[in-house]
Simulated scan of single mutants.
Amino acid sequence: MQRIFAADIGGTNARFALFTGHEGSLGLDTVVWEKSADLRTAEDLLQIMQRQLQTPLAEGDMLVIALAGPTHGLRGKLTNGPLQVDLGGVGQRYGLSCCLLINDFTAQAFAALTPRGAGAKVVRGRALPDTESTQTKAVFGAGTGLGAASLVCCGGEAGFRHWLAVPSEAGHAPFAFVGAEEHAYQGFLARDLGCDMPTAENVLCGEGLSLLHYYLSGQFYYPAMVGEQVLSHDTPTLHWYARFLGRFCRQWILNTLSRGGLWIAGGIVAKNPQCVEHPAFLQELAAGGDVGGIVHATPILLTTDANSGLWGAARAGLEHLRGQTLAASAKG
């Protein structure tokens, strides 16, 4: 039996949980949410984590922090907030034997292996992904920014295979516009943003959603209001956005060969599921080439559980602990 402390830190919310791991499965013991605006250092984060979970970190086998920002080793920075994390020496100070710092979409990728991944809402394809499948899985989500990652099986015995999360900067790749109407919008977007090649993040994230609605209607709404006022019923903005979303999904499936499933995590789509229910989304998925029928065969799911990142962080912790055990066995 292993106890894993997990944190999922975003620009607005900081989520903390305590999990129990046993023979490759996870159980959630406690979960609490706090605002992340006042977090500045790793000490702030860990102190509030202990206090809110009412459990000393020394009682855990593993600490995993998923951070919405760039990470390198045990250091990272929250993109939309003042928090800077340095976990060097934390284990000794808090009595922890093992610490792990990962990007939030690495956690979302690992969440596909948990009950939250299996229980995600099916957008298209079979009702449930095959949990025993070793096929590559992928995830992305568009909110303030666009995150994307994939999960590749690297072997191991049945029941607990070894998985490797592959990070990505797919959100910063140029978006593929098609046809005269879309190229006219591309020109507008490029002028407004002051860039030559708008990216997928420019198109699919909150700012891009506001600009898309302004271009099509002449009305400017902040992203949250676009969701409430415009995406809630069939409008040109919903039609265009659903088409753009379907195109990115098709490209990401082909880029990652994610036959094991594509999970759309959180952000705009979780709050506005009609974006993936609109006919334009499915039509765009079916457009263009589909080598070997990969796109058609890949199930697409929508993660609506806001705690999925915590589950993914804990699953990453299990993976890390399992790797340590196997390495120790090999040396012995």
Rank of each mutant, 00 (worst) to 15 (best):
S210R: 03
P82I: 04
L209T: 10
I294S: 07
L211V: 11
V276L: 05
G73E: 06
N202R: 01
C153H: 03
L216M: 09
Q54I: 06
C98D: 15
V295P: 00
L146A: 04
L302I: 07
V226E: 05
G95N: 09
A242T: 00
F19A: 03
E182W: 00
L209F: 13
D104K: 03
A37Y: 15
L57A: 02
G309S: 09
N272D: 11
A265I: 14
P299T: 10
Q219H: 13
G117Q: 14
H72D: 11
G317Q: 00
V139P: 02
L83Y: 06
A327V: 12
F188C: 08
A316R: 06
E201A: 14
G143R: 04
N307L: 12
A327D: 15
R191F: 12
T106V: 10
F188R: 03
L282F: 12
F110L: 01
L212D: 03
G155D: 10
A190N: 06
N272M: 09
P299M: 07
V152Y: 03
I48Y: 12
T144K: 14
F177V: 06
L74I: 01
R126C: 13
E23K: 07
H72P: 01
L302H: 02
T20Q: 11
L285K: 02
A112T: 13
F188V: 05
V139Y: 11
T298I: 08
G145R: 11
L53S: 08
D234H: 07
F177A: 05
H172F: 08
I264T: 06
A66S: 11
G91D: 02
S217H: 13
Q52W: 09
G179K: 07
Q2W: 10
D290T: 09
A314V: 08
G27P: 05
T12C: 02
Q135A: 11
E157D: 11
R322N: 12
R315L: 06
T298S: 08
E228A: 14
H22V: 14
P273E: 05
G266N: 04
T41K: 00
Y215E: 05
W263M: 08
L146Q: 08
I253G: 00
L87N: 03
I102P: 04
L321A: 02
A17V: 07
G227D: 15
G332T: 10
L321V: 01
A306Y: 13
G88Y: 01
S36D: 05
E23Q: 09
H233L: 03
P236I: 06
V166H: 10
A7W: 03
L285S: 07
T325A: 15
H239C: 12
I9M: 11
I102F: 02
A111W: 07
T131S: 14
L26E: 04
A328G: 09
H183W: 09
E43N: 12
G293M: 15
E157N: 04
G206C: 09
G332Y: 06
D44F: 07
T325I: 11
S97E: 10
Y215N: 00
H320V: 00
A6V: 15
V123A: 12
A165E: 01
F140Y: 09
L151Q: 07
E169G: 09
S210C: 09
C205Q: 03
Q186E: 15
A37P: 15
L211R: 09
A270G: 06
V230P: 00
E181Y: 13
P56D: 14
A127G: 06
D61T: 04
S133M: 08
